[in-house]
Write a protein that binds this DNA or RNA. Structure first.
Lengths: 212, 212
DNA sequence: TAGATTGTTAATCGATTAACAATC
DNA sequence: TAGATTGTTAATCGATTAACAATC
């Protein structure tokens, strides 16, 4: 066991993967798994799995394995996805709308409580029950909503401005879909989702092996 | 210089970042940059930048730096985003639609040439000028379109099936938005976009430091 | 008990970064 | 030329994985 502060990011990412996988197992009425079984089904090395968990305590029984439901709920607690968390979405365009309507968000307890846009034609309209608010009113509105997590789904040229406003509004975790490197204070956590970049990487990989 | 096969994935990801950044520089009429300047503006270590490039040849002039336009076009060539590439989108729901309409795709020369869905009510309709085709006809249709890259934007329960059909249709690079681990032959490259996972990671990070 | 599997240490592997000779 | 900056080697850092004693 080790309650120390330095958990590698890859470990956290895999933890989220384990959680999804455990939900599937639960749905199939599996109640115990071993790390070897995890490796077989997910391709993640068994030692890796055990090591990842070891950052947070002891979860299994030697000779037996891990209880699916117990492990699932403990990982959910670690990642704080065991209870609803309010989230703001910035940008009510195609991408923003798709995100607000994405059922996976609520399933993992991320509740979209506010949607913001700057387009006067969109402001006041509803998106999946949530009213679109003027992005200029973000701080005021979030003083009530108290969301600490925001999703940036605005065009690249607007993203930095939105990030700045978000920080002022008390949002200190940003999931950024815009293809730019955001400059933020070190009080703010940013993670980038850049699927264009992912496509570019695959594009290179495809080209490597013409047979493929 | 080193034309060897083993370029680290993180290097490829950063290459895509450099490319975007260089496009911005070009738009601001900057014609030369040094690795130190790159570090200042992007936060990526200067040695890292030079090392990344060194996998592919020599790009700069000692004492001078890098020519923005030249470097840009050479990176685009490396990543094969210097010419149009056909892409299929699987799933015409909220997410799929947003992706098809996303201008950034075409900007990086990824051309959506086919959209597939299984819902009879959607088949035959148009999405941003592209007709939605029955997913069952994928192989037949792609024998003409010849796309090798596909984007999976269907619900988790359908994703594996789609991946299997895609492989049969000659699509050997898959960008997967569904929250599952796809099982594919090693002829197929998969990259996952899992923004729920990203949110979970941030959720943990936020919880680490209550002051934040 | 014997067999299975954990949690953890130590070894390996790979990626990042510092340092510097080469060179514009 | 002197100053700046590259490309690359070597050192550092961190993450992955193999091995195994502890234990159910």
């Amino acid at each position: 066991m080790n309650t120390s502060p330095k958990v590698p990011i890859p470990t956290l990412e895999r933890l989220a993967t384990y959680l999804r996988y455990l939900l599937d197992l639960e749905a199939s009425f599996v109640d115990t798994i071993s790390s070897t079984e995890v490796e077989k089904q997910t391709g993640i090395n068994a030692a890796q799995f055990r090591k990842d968990l070891s950052y947070f305590g002891e979860f299994g029984k030697p000779g037996v394995g891990y209880n699916v439901i117990d492990l699932q709920s403990r990982i959910a607690k670690i990642l704080r996805v065991d209870h609803d968390q309010p989230v703001l979405v910035f940008g009510a365009g195609n991408l923003g709308s798709a995100l607000v309507g994405y059922p996976g968000l609520a399933e993992q307890h991320f509740k979209v409580v506010g949607v913001f846009d700057q387009n006067p034609r969109k402001i006041g309209q509803k998106l999946f029950q949530i009213e679109i608010t003027d992005i200029a009113r973000m701080k005021e509105v979030n003083s009530v909503l108290q969301a600490r997590i925001g999703i940036i789904a605005v065009p690249a040229h607007a993203a930095q401005l939105v990030a700045d406003s978000a920080a002022l509004a008390g949002v200190n975790a940003l999931l950024n879909f815009a293809p730019i490197i955001l400059k933020v204070s070190d009080r703010v956590v940013v993670r980038n989702v850049s699927f264009i970049q992912e496509l570019a990487v695959m594009s290179y990989q495809l080209a490597l092996d013409p047979v493929k």
